[in-house]
Amino acid sequence: MRWLWLDRILELERAKRCVAVKNVSIAEEVLHDHFPATDTHPATPVMPNTLIIEGMAQTAGILVGHANDFREKVILAKINKATFTDAARPGVCLRFTAHIERLDTAGASTSGVVEYFEPCTCEPRPLATIDLMFSHIDHNRSGLSFPEHNFVFGPTFKDLLRQSGFAQA
């Protein structure tokens, strides 16, 4: 995992469920361009839905990797469904909850929901449902070659686990 789009892992239940959170900050540069002010509209900073999918991919990817003690190189292979019902504005906390639907040697399918919490109420509100497919690429090389070392779950990712209290995960 080359960069993190999660702040903390809250729950990690082997081969079943992973819950992670990310805070949305106006300081994040990506919000400055999404969407900037125009002649007719003021700026409307919201986290791009593609990056919310990335957050779910990291949450579910950790879950799938953890199921095999991070021996497999787990790659997002397909977005089966991504449905958004709201927007993620600065100041909210996003909660990603991923479940494994099916796991085998070739890969896994996951289902997930994203909720957001307004800091003033702390009540969860639905934001998106995101279902994904992951490939264990060493079992699906299709003639391609990949590095031997596990470049997916690198030091940054291990730091996140440790900082979240899953040092033995």
């Binding site: 292979a77 397909k78 639907e101 890969g107 399918s109 497919m133 490939s135 699906n140």
Partner: peptide, 9 residues
């Protein structure tokens, strides 16, 4: 190729 795994599931 990944669709075949999806279809199987």
């Amino acid at each position: 190729s990944i669709d075949f795994l999806d279809i199987a599931f």
